[in-house]
Design a protein around this nucleic acid. Structure first.
Lengths: 352, 352
DNA sequence: TGTTAGCACTCGCGCTGATTGAGTGCTAAA
DNA sequence: TTTAGCACTCAATCAGCGCGAGTGCTAACA
C-alpha cells in the first residue's frame, strides 16, 4: 500500500480540518467540504488504509479520525518545501515593531517574544545570548551616593548591564573617571565568563593606580567579580503562556496547570532548548519531544546567529494540532528579523 | 436579634471551615469539628438567625451555608485588632530574601512580588513609584559605539534608568565627561516629569558649551526628552497570576481565563490600584470592589512610603474565601520591609 | 478493478427518572 | 432554652434509553 495522490489529498484535508476544529473528522465532512469528486464510501476506504499506515487513529469506533504525530510529521515535511521560499510576514514591518520603543537589547527580546505569541496565539520563548560569552567593551562607574556606585558594563551587541556596588569607603568623585578608564583599558576584550580566571593579572596590572584611588579599587574588583558570577547563565523570555487556556485541548484545568507549571519553570525550559537542534528551523512533534509534559505539543524552534555563530534561539510551543503553516513562517520571519537587528548592532562593533 | 457570643463563635467556625474547604458548611460539621458543646439543632437555629442577619446564605435548600461578603467583612474587621500588633513573618528574614541578588530597585520589586505570591499563594502586585515623580541626581553618558551613547539617569531612591541614544554625529570621547557633568549640573534636582517644561531654560543655559560639543548636544536633548516621555506612567509588577488555577472556584477554564485577562492587563490593574485607599492597609471584599471581574475576589492592598509620602502600593488578589489572616499579615510585613529598604536608600540621599 | 449505494453495527452523548444522602426547618418534649 | 425526632428538599450520582454521527462490510455497478 502506498501513499498515492488521492490518499495524500485526503490526509491533508483531514489534518487541515482537524487543525481548524479540533474535532475528529468523518468521511462525509471531507467529501462535502473538500472537492475530491468521490463519495464518502470511497473516502472511508482510503481512511481505513491511512489508519493502517499509521497516519490516522480513531478515538473510538463511532467517531471520525484524528491525525497521528506521524501524519503531522508528513504534513510538516511536505509544507517545508513551500515555506522555505516564501514568508507571509513583512520583514520590514516586523523590524519596525520590534525596534519600536526598544533602545536596548532587553526590549528587543521582550518585544519579539510578545509579537511571536500574539501572531501565533501560542506560548513563545526567546533564549537570549549567554551573557558570559559577551565581551566587555567599556566599564563606567557612575556615582549614586557617596558609598554606592553603579558600574555600567557595555558589552558587545549593545548589551548593557549595571551592577550596583556598595562601598565601605568613599571614592572621590574626581577619581571616578580615572578608575573607569583604567578598568576599561584593562578589561577590554575579555569575556565576562573569563574574568574570574584573569582576575589576578588584572589586579596586578591595576596596582599602579592604587595610590590615587586608595583601597576602594581593591574593594571594587572582588565585588564586581561576584556580581558578574550572579548573572544568569541563561536568560529566557516567555510570553503568551496563558494562551493555552483558549485551546479546547486544555479545557481541563488540571492539564492546563501541568503545562503552565512546566513552561513557567525556566530551568526545564532551558534544558528543553538545549536539546533542540541547531538548524535554522527545527520542529519536533508530539512524542518526538523528550519531555513527557510536551507529548501532546509541538515545538518549533529557530536560531539566530551573528556571523554564522549561534547565539540564541526562539521558539513556539503549541498543541500538535497546530497551525504549522502560520507558526513556521512566523518563527522563520522572526528569526530572520532578529538576525538582522542583532547583526546590525554587532556590525557597529566591527567598524570600530 | 443581636450577635451574641455564641453566634460569633459559630460564624467564625463557619468562615474558617469554608476558607479551608471551599464547601458549604452544615450544622453537623460545625458541631463535630468545633467544640461548642451544643447540638446541631441548636446550631441550625443560630445559623438560621445568622442567615436572616445577612451573614450567611444557602446556595440551595438542602445545602449547608456559605459566608457572605458581610461575614468576611465582619471577620476581617475583627481579625484586624489582633493582626495590628503581631506579624507572623520575620521582618529581617524577609529583608534578607528581598535584598538577595537585588542590587537595584527593579530587582527589589521583582523579588518582593514573587515572595508575596509565593507566601500567599495568590496573585500579587506591586505598583512601583511613578518614575515621573523621581528627581534627577546625575546624568552620565557612556559611549557604546561611535554613534550610540547610553545615557544613564541616576534618580533618587537608587533608581537607575538607561536610555540608548542614536546620534547622527559622533561625540568625541574626551567631551563625553564634560557633557555629562554639564548635563548633571543643569538637570540636578528636576523632576523627570517636569523636564519638558524647563526644557527651554536648560537648552539656553547649556548654550555656552555648544562650541565644544558641536551640535551633538542639541541633538541629544530632544531625544532625551522624547525617551523620558516614553517612560511608563506607572510600572506594575505582577506574579503568581496562574496560582488561581489551583483554586476550586476557578476550576472552570472560562472563569479562570476571565480573571487572568483582567489581571494581565496592566491598564485595568493601574486603574484598580488608583481606586484603592491610601491607608497603611486596605481590604476590599467581593462586591466592595468596583470592578465586576473581581466581584468574587478580595483585594488586600498596602502602601509604602518615604518620609510619610506615599510612593507605591502592594497588593494581593484572591477569592473572597481567602486566608485573610495569613494574607493580611504577609502584606503588612511586606510593606514594612519595603518601607525599610526604600527609606534606607532614600536616607542615603538625604545625608548627602 | 475501482467506485459507490445500502445497511447493519458501534458507541459517545444527552436526556430522563430513580435513588441517595447531606442538610434544613419545624415541632414537641425535656 | 435546648434538643431529639422527623418530614422535607434538592444536588449529585447513576443506570437506562434513544439519537445520531460515523464506520465497515457487502453487493452491485461502471
Amino acid at each position: 500500500m502506498s501513499l498515492d495522490k488521492r490518499k495524500i489529498k485526503i490526509l491533508k484535508a483531514i489534518i487541515s480540518s482537524y487543525i481548524d476544529n479540533a474535532e475528529a473528522v468523518g468521511s462525509r465532512t471531507i467529501s462535502k467540504k473538500y472537492e475530491l469528486g468521490v463519495s464518502p464510501a470511497t473516502i472511508r476506504n482510503e481512511m481505513s488504509d491511512l489508519e493502517e499506515m499509521g497516519f490516522l487513529i480513531q478515538p473510538h469506533a463511532s467517531a471520525g479520525r484524528i491525525p497521528t504525530d506521524k501524519a503531522y510529521r508528513y504534513y510538516v515535511d511536505d509544507l517545508w518545501k513551500k515555506v522555505q521560499s516564501s514568508s507571509n510576514v513583512n520583514l520590514h514591518q516586523l523590524r519596525g515593531i520590534i525596534e519600536e520603543k526598544a533602545n536596548e537589547m532587553d526590549s528587543v527580546f521582550k518585544n519579539s517574544v510578545r509579537i511571536l505569541s500574539q501572531f501565533t496565539k501560542y506560548t513563545s520563548f526567546i533564549v537570549a545570548p549567554q551573557l558570559k560569552q559577551a565581551i566587555i567593551k567599556r566599564i563606567q562607574l557612575v556615582p549614586v551616593t557617596d558609598k554606592k556606585v553603579l558600574l555600567v558594563l557595555v558589552l558587545n551587541s549593545d548589551i548593557v548591564k549595571q551592577v550596583m556596588i556598595n562601598l565601605s569607603n568613599t571614592i572621590p568623585l574626581e577619581q571616578m573617571d580615572k578608575i573607569s578608564s583604567s578598568l576599561t583599558e584593562k578589561m577590554y576584550g575579555h569575556k565576562l565568563g573569563d574574568i574570574d580566571s584573569v582576575k589576578k593579572n588584572i589586579i596586578q596590572e591595576l596596582y599602579y593606580i592604587r595610590e590615587s584611588s586608595g583601597d576602594s579599587l581593591f574593594e571594587l574588583l572582588p565585588y564586581l567579580m561576584e556580581q558578574i558570577g550572579k548573572f544568569e547563565d541563561f536568560n529566557i523570555y516567555a510570553d503568551g503562556i496563558t494562551n493555552i487556556l483558549n485551546l479546547p485541548e486544555y479545557n481541563d484545568v488540571v492539564k492546563a496547570r501541568e503545562f503552565i507549571s512546566f513552561v513557567e519553570d525556566k530551568n526545564s525550559l532551558a534544558k528543553l532548548f538545549q536539546i533542540t537542534g541547531e538548524n535554522a528551523l527545527d520542529i519536533s512533534i508530539g512524542h518526538e519531544n523528550q519531555y513527557n509534559e510536551l507529548r501532546d505539543c509541538s515545538l518549533i524552534t529557530a536560531t539566530y546567529k551573528i556571523n554564522g555563530k549561534l547565539i540564541g534561539k526562539i521558539g513556539v510551543i503549541g498543541p500538535t494540532r497546530m497551525d504549522y503553516d502560520k507558526v513556521i513562517s512566523t518563527v522563520k520571519s522572526m528569526s530572520e528579523a532578529m538576525n538582522e537587528i542583532i547583526s546590525q548592532n554587532f556590525n557597529d562593533d566591527k567598524e570600530e
